[in-house]
Amino acid sequence: MDFISILSIFVLSCFVGYYVVWSVTPALHTPLMAVTNAISSVIIVGGLIAAAAAGVPGAKWLGLAAVALASVNIFGGFAVTQRMLSMYKKKERK
């Protein structure tokens, strides 16, 4: 993909992010931070590419370390978000 297409996606995503995040209820701001943490670990893709490539051992080990760190975040981030969200309950109507 050329730079301009990538830049277009990036700029439009910033606008999407702006509107989506403003619609998040303040009560859920902590889960918002936890889940953004988890999804920003999509950087694991870069780690996987480096770890998968043969040839340069240094890059491979750096990639593997990145994969491990990002995995902590992915599993931990989604799990802790789930744990928090499951605690939000409505009033029981009697």
Binding site: I9, F10, C14, G17, V20, V21, T36, I39, S40
Partner: peptide, 9 residues
């Protein structure tokens, strides 16, 4: 997309 979302968030 993720980077932009998290960055703006």
């Amino acid at each position: 997309i993720t980077g932009a979302l998290v960055g703006s968030s």
